[in-house]
Amino acid sequence: MSNWVEVCATDEIDEEDVIRFDHAGRTFAVYRSPDDEFFATDGLCTHEKIHLAEGLVMDDIIECPKHNGRFSYKTGEAKGAPVCVDLKTYPVKVEGGSVFIAVA
């Protein structure tokens, strides 16, 4: 399943922040946690398909900008109304100063 795709340089994502990454007709959200780890999830909220990368990252939570649906971006777990469907997560690795995600 390992189809690694380069997202960006590590310094293109701030700590405790998120960027949008589009690849092959799909959209992802790629995160850098406050303790400097990288994570990736599907890019759209499971409630109304809003781009999560426009939302707010606090600790290990991404909050949808539209209706404040909250997910753990580390596990994809939906944290309560209005979202009840978990986010899909993707493996991430850092190599040579770049962030890669496995988009299989």
Partner: peptide, 11 residues
């Protein structure tokens, strides 16, 4: 436009 102000309003 769109969700341009959402993040800052939440903060």
């Amino acid at each position: 436009p769109g969700n341009a102000v959402a993040r800052d309003i939440r903060l």
